[in-house]
Design a protein around this nucleic acid. Structure first.
Lengths: 136, 136
DNA sequence: TAACAATTGTTGTTGCTTATAGCAATCCAT
DNA sequence: ATGGATTGCTATAAGCAACAACAATTGTTA
């Protein structure tokens, strides 16, 4: 079939993102985590006592949508909340959460390495800076 | 906030795809088209009498999910169906569909050009081949 | 040619994700 | 001290894709 779409960088960007996201998701599923979950665990691990709204701003997730996400993680015993003041609550990893986070990071790093291997050598080092420029 | 995520190519890939998709979507909205719609119009334009299942295979969209997509385009008077044999039907652009398709292509090409401009010169030419390798 | 397998278009359902609006409580700055 | 902003939350709606199932038709091969 004649298909001019792959010649559009934007189209290839979407397809590449879909393909890699599907692969990573299936690997994270073994930890019963989704990509968002892993992102949240990593950010909370790096920033103890971060608030839900700050996380949302960082990940471009609206406040309202953070609620069910964090509830899942809390119900799974991966994070804890402790009140910082009357209205804000700090988020921290539980010990189970730290363990999961480590495992997730291992999976993600292995995945990223494999992914980069798929990119032909001369283009490889240009991928990250090129992508970064597109959303910053 | 400490945020190691942007250093992961996979994460930057997802963020870049989201950011660019949002931008392109808002531009296509002026034609009352979504990205899928535009993709379908372009493919049908290039391949008259293509079937719904062939389109789905090309775009990695399941047969079942093609139904509402094509129905929208048909209801909008952009495509026509004609039976090829007892069960298959060929899809073609109506004249209105061809007009829309041209407009969409203009918007997309302008968008792609602007998008590439955002990528610093030394990385630019590597973007498409790098992305292509990730989903093929 | 008769039986079996694969394909096509479709329906209906489900779950996931995001958008949106609104609300009460609290914090902060003038 | 008051008004505006922020935080966490509820509830709702919409869009999108996955999945299973089905009837009709086509093709393959024994």
């Amino acid at each position: 079939m004649r298909d001019p779409l792959p010649d559009f960088p934007g189209y290839s960007l979407r397809r590449a993102a879909n393909a890699t996201a599907a692969e990573l998701s299936s690997r994270l599923a073994e930890l019963e985590l989704r990509q968002v979950d892993a992102s949240l665990l990593i950010l909370i691990g790096e920033n103890p006592d971060v608030t839900a709204s700050a996380l949302g701003r960082q990940l471009d997730i609206q406040r309202a949508n953070m609620v069910p996400l964090l509830k899942r993680l809390e119900d799974a015993g991966l994070i804890d909340r402790k009140p910082l003041d009357g209205k804000s609550q700090g988020l921290v990893l539980t010990s189970a959460g730290e363990e999961k986070c480590k495992q997730a990071q291992a999976i993600i790093e292995a995945f990223e390495t494999e992914m980069l291997q798929r990119v032909p050598e001369p283009h490889r080092e240009h991928l990250l800076p090129a992508l970064y420029a597109l959303w910053n």
